[in-house]
Amino acid sequence: MANSKKTVVIGASPNPSRYAYQAAHMLSRHGHDFIPLSIKKGNVAGEEIMDLREKPVITDIDTLTLYIGPQHQAEWIDYLLSLSPRRIIFNPGTENKYFIQKAEGQGVEVVSGCTLVMLQTGTY
């Protein structure tokens, strides 16, 4: 099996000051396939941002990494879980008790952590 962990960056951004932008670039540098998914348009680290509102079908996902706050997650929870990720990383500020319980109830590994730190420390 390849070392790459296909990751969907939820809340991806073409804005270099956003953590989601930095995560996309770092995933790319570490050799992980990533799919940017957001309501924002543009591209990041050479990948076109897919429109979250279209709820695209994405398969073979290892990880969802969240960069949208709990106040904006409700309408996407069922869709995101339907993608059948192996794990979801709740980056700082994205923690959502309801989403976490629902994910764990479906057997999804839940990590409260920072994707950037995990990549930098080799714990991704």
Rank of each mutant, 00 (worst) to 15 (best):
P70C: 10
L119Y: 06
A12P: 07
R86V: 03
H72K: 14
E104P: 12
L66I: 06
V8H: 00
E95I: 15
D78P: 12
I100P: 09
E104M: 14
R87T: 04
K5M: 15
G42I: 09
I35L: 00
N15A: 12
L64V: 04
V117S: 11
S4A: 08
R29T: 13
G93C: 15
F90D: 02
Y98M: 13
M50I: 07
K97H: 13
N15I: 12
G122V: 12
T63G: 00
H32K: 06
E54S: 09
R86S: 04
E109S: 09
S84K: 09
E75P: 04
F99W: 08
I88R: 00
I100E: 13
E95Q: 11
S4V: 07
K40E: 11
V9F: 00
Q73H: 01
G42W: 08
I77R: 07
I61M: 01
Y79N: 04
D60N: 10
G105H: 05
A45Y: 02
A2H: 06
V8R: 02
K102F: 03
R86E: 08
V111Q: 06
Q71A: 14
K102M: 02
L27H: 00
N43D: 09
Y79F: 02
Q73V: 01
G93L: 11
I35S: 00
E47H: 09
V108A: 03
K102R: 07
L27F: 00
